[in-house]
Design a protein around this nucleic acid. Structure first.
Lengths: 216, 216
DNA sequence: GTCTATAGGTAGATAGAC
DNA sequence: GTCTATCTACCTATAGAC
């Protein structure tokens, strides 16, 4: 009897925490940390405001919990860049994976962007160190490809920044992207076309080679 | 006598408005609209809070005034893309101008990014229409180059989005850029290297051509 | 675990003396 | 034009009944 009640409580508890984090992600991503009101999170979660404080001790704790969960998406895409793969194929895969992430989790992507713009106040030193290390690892992969003559010699870190900026734009700056594409919403097809354009541009460039050169 | 007093008042007025807008740009860019406190603007401007309300009727009016002034930077860079120029040269010029703008006005760039992330709530319909028209105009220039065989056939609008994302990253997401580049501040030299990398990548691509192909 | 009521603090904006 | 004092509203967070 006591056991059953405990299990039920545990279920309700897990469900409420999940709902709170879900709607909080939505509000934080649209209004930033300071612009978000606990009352709005409570309303969307369909819980009394006091219950939010039953599960989390403060607004900051909710926010930090979400931030900490975001770093994973970063790793997944970068892991596509294995040194033993064909550079063109690996890079195309990376761009597509990164765009897929931002398409599937636009709120999370925006929340992260908002946090960085405001100076990365709540991004922990541990998470930052982890991201720095990941960048180092994969910059080394690109540099190895360059030494092997399988990739043009450019600055790997600036190249990464270029890809991050290009891929995140679609969710983070959605109103601008919609205006540019003359659409009211960025569709899955738009994301596909974005991937196609980015991949074609970074792999082959946009300026045709001398007249005698043929594209295979 | 009245004349002299009037002129003096006018000078003080212009100076105070300038100072208020300047420090407001700083605070808004770091904390967003909702996170910004009028009291902080007053403190940095070294004026009593009530005086802010003497010059501006509301927090929103200060914010909107700044936003409206930002659109100019957009035009300056795009104007480099004239149809009669050599594509490679024009595109390189565009990237450098855009990076120069974000380097010179990082606060303005961040403020604009923050406004867009939060849903472009205060960006006027007039300003949005203007930006859409500019995008259309310059997408047409790129499409003409493509038809003339002077540029690879890609999606011009997605290509623009790619360049916007890549160039804005350095000021908007500065903490991430610093981590990636292992530096505490993005220097002018870093911006130069960014321009070099972006230009090399978009013009020529990163994957070497077949063995028989020579780079001119 | 849930909820009402409220404490305690701070925000945007204004009144009115100077 | 400047500034002190203050109004009103709303926010985060908590106390305590159920």
């Amino acid at each position: 009897m006591a056991r059953t009640a405990e299990k039920l409580d545990e279920k309700i508890r897990a469900r409420n925490i999940r709902i709170i984090l879900d709607v909080a992600t939505d509000v934080f991503s649209r209004k930033g940390f300071d612009g978000t009101r606990i009352a709005e999170i409570a309303e969307l979660a369909e819980l009394p405001k006091a219950n939010i404080y039953y599960y989390f001790s403060s607004k900051e704790e909710i926010y930090s919990t979400i931030i900490a969960n975001l770093i994973e998406g970063w790793d997944d895409a970068l892991s596509k860049l294995r040194a033993d793969r064909e550079p063109a194929e690996a890079l195309a895969d990376y761009v597509r994976t990164k765009l897929e992430y931002t398409r599937k989790f636009p709120r999370e992507s925006r929340l992260f962007a908002s946090e960085i713009i405001q100076g990365a106040r709540f991004l922990s030193q541990k998470d930052r160190a982890h991201m720095r290390a990941a960048t180092d690892t994969y910059a080394a992969v690109l540099e190895r490809w360059m030494q092997e003559g399988r990739m043009a010699k450019i600055d790997a870190r600036h190249f990464f920044i270029m890809l991050w900026g290009a891929t995140q734009f679609y969710s983070d700056f959605e109103p601008l992207a919609c205006d540019a594409l003359h659409t009211r919403r960025i569709s899955a097809a738009d994301y596909d076309r974005a991937a196609e354009t980015i991949v074609a541009t970074i792999l082959g460039g946009v300026i045709p080679r001398t007249e005698t050169t043929e594209r295979s």
